[in-house]
Design a protein around this nucleic acid. Structure first.
Lengths: 217, 217
DNA sequence: TTGACAATGAAACAGCTGATTCATACAGTC
DNA sequence: GACTGTATGAATCAGCTGTTTCATTGTCAA
């Protein structure tokens, strides 16, 4: 039935069903959450049969698990990128680099921002995947951030004040991930160079807070 | 069948079915979100028949609408309480009062913190109710907060810097509403006087940020 | 060619959900 | 006492969801 010319290329054809399912599921889960997405939605978007989900991933939950694993890997790469961007700089420079990488990667929704959306959704509506995300992504990030804060405050990394300040900085970054909130409360931040402005703002605002608390130590 | 003594009290009996449904629905919707709660769950908790939801509220969506309306009213009362607590004080005192009322009312989950949970959930997973919440709760709150910030920065309330600073303060307060996040990243804040400590921290941290930006104006 | 095996497609299944129907109980009114 | 409208209860319905079953296809090795 197939011509001789493309017998080989037809094998590779498109991307394999498994990959298409993963890609479609990642986007849909990030956009609408686990429960709001049906496997029929996913298979429709991936041009695959319904049974393919159970065949390749042993069910919807298994597919979500793999998507989460994929998200964790990319989020870890974002953390590494933030650390690399601050390598060799002083604490202030490392903080700025951290906020910059975080916000730019988050703002690039079409690229890989969807993974952070999954994390955000897990935080506000935990599933069994939350523990993995916290252990493998959030904790290392906060540990790095606490290191910066501790240096700026001039006190040990496990000091309660360090934890609170890191929480304040993290809160501002997390808030930027929330599209509806940003659009309603800080619309200009969604604009073209709005992200850059917000990087500067969060950095300056937080540095001032840190310096003030450092003086009262 | 009923004794003469309590014929009247039996009419009022327990709270009416409609009230019980509203109460149970508010708690369940806040805890698990709209889609994860079934009308059977609600009717089970409210000791009511399934048909009662459709009879009193014309369906699940109608019940949720009424719950949201109830939440809006209480959240408005929180805003008013925050304004009253700051009445007559200077900008710094008003900011501290605002953060204090917000966090204490939010931390009191068993009391009326559930309403803020509904708001938080709407922000991360918008339904048609989000617009109402933003218009009637979030906007007035942010307007009040911007007034404080503008005074501290010494510039007009519609200045972009004011918007960004109000966003930073709001972000820290909102983050405190996220139970899993607080427990994972800032566990001591969930403790007994942890809320008081966080009120002081957010206030001091933000005031320092504001003063720093005011100097560069 | 034959058999084995991975992959896919079409159909059906069991469970749950929101909504509906219909009968019943009860309080107030004439 | 008969009637009316409100409120509740039990049963059922239609639709959707995740999963399963079974037949089919295509590929590779013997």
């Amino acid at each position: 039935m197939s011509s001789i010319v493309n017998t080989v290329t037809e094998v590779a054809e498109d991307v394999h069903t498994r990959e298409r399912l993963l890609e479609a599921a990642a986007r849909l889960f990030a956009d609408h959450g686990y429960t709001h997405v049906t496997i029929r939605d996913i298979c429709g978007a991936a041009r695959a049969n319904i049974a393919a989900v159970n065949y390749h991933f042993a069910g919807k939950a298994g597919l979500y698990d793999e998507v989460v694993q994929l998200a964790i890997h990319t989020m870890q790469s974002v953390t590494r990128e933030a650390e690399d961007a601050g390598a060799g700089k002083n604490a202030e420079g490392r903080l700025r680099a951290y906020v910059h990488v975080f916000l730019t990667r988050v703002a690039a929704i079409d690229a890989d921002g969807w993974m952070h959306h999954i994390m955000l959704r897990e935080l506000s509506e935990p599933t069994s995947a939350l523990d993995r995300i916290v252990d493998q992504v959030v904790r290392p990030r906060m540990a790095y951030l606490r290191g910066i804060v501790a240096e700026l405050l001039g006190c040990p990394a496990d000091d309660e004040r360090v934890v609170r300040c890191a929480f304040s900085i993290h809160s501002q970054c997390i808030a930027m991930m929330n599209k509806p909130m940003v659009e309603q409360l800080n619309p200009s931040a969604g604009g073209r160079d709005g992200v850059g402005t917000m990087v500067d703002h969060i950095t300056e605002f937080s540095l001032a807070g840190l310096w003030a608390l450092a003086r009262t130590t």
